[in-house]
């Protein structure tokens, strides 16, 4: 029962984050929102008795993926600045 409540709460936040990720104008915020979805998903995996998946999702899905996104954004930003010069 408690699980169900947790999942509903986490799920709602995830859906909101998903909408934000899609509709926020700022790309960095959007990437962070997508990372939050993954992070919360790893909590759900813990609730579903899948700790291996939870660790992996937290480390790769939310952690590294976000870093990779941010690196890409940084790269693009840099190009923008280069052309501005």
């Amino acid at each position: 029962m408690l699980n169900t409540v947790f999942i509903i709460i986490l799920g709602s936040i995830m859906l909101v984050a998903a909408f934000l990720a899609v509709y926020i104008k700022n790309l960095v915020s959007s990437v962070i929102a997508a990372g939050i979805i993954s992070l919360l998903a790893s909590l759900i995996y813990l609730l579903l008795a899948a700790p291996d998946v939870a660790m992996t999702e937290a480390a790769i899905g939310s952690g590294l993926t976000t870093v990779v996104f941010l690196l890409a954004l940084k790269n693009i930003k840099q190009k923008e600045e280069d052309t501005d010069d």
């Binding site: 700790p51 291996d52 939870a54 660790m55 992996t56 480390a59 790769i60 952690g63 590294l64």
Partner: peptide, 12 residues
């Protein structure tokens, strides 16, 4: 829980 992937990410 955990293993090669997770440990690898930590190192990375």
């Amino acid at each position: 829980p955990g293993g090669g992937f997770q440990g690898g990410v930590v190192i990375a």
